[in-house]
């Protein structure tokens, strides 16, 4: 059971989060300008390292913020976590 540091709420149990996968694939600004190969690479090819991995999680049972987490896929150690951008105030 992972313990993930939510930058907004503090350390929380894994069960409060949902996984969002590789954090290193921002959506292209203009998909129409991409070739089929480039679009496919963005859509289907992800980082899959045996080691440290930057990934997205959503604190879905908490503040519902999407956060970045650097986690080791061999040891599950959470190296760091961060807010993706300053929280908007409503």
């Amino acid at each position: 059971m992972l313990l993930i540091q939510c930058p907004f709420c503090g350390p929380r149990d894994q069960v409060e989060f949902s996984y969002g996968g590789d954090a290193g694939v921002p959506r292209p600004a203009d998909p129409a300008a991409l070739s089929d190969d480039k679009w496919n690479a963005w859509l289907n090819e992800r980082d899959n390292p045996a080691g440290e991995h930057d990934e997205l999680w959503q604190h879905s049972m908490g503040c519902r913020r999407w956060i970045g987490v650097r986690r080791n896929t061999l040891s599950h150690e959470v190296v760091s976590s961060w807010a993706l951008q300053p929280a908007k105030t409503a």
Partner: peptide
């Protein structure tokens, strides 16, 4: 288990 892993270890939830 729902997240990338090479750890060959289980997960309680």
């Amino acid at each position: 288990d729902g997240y990338n892993s090479y750890a060959q270890r289980g997960n309680l939830p």
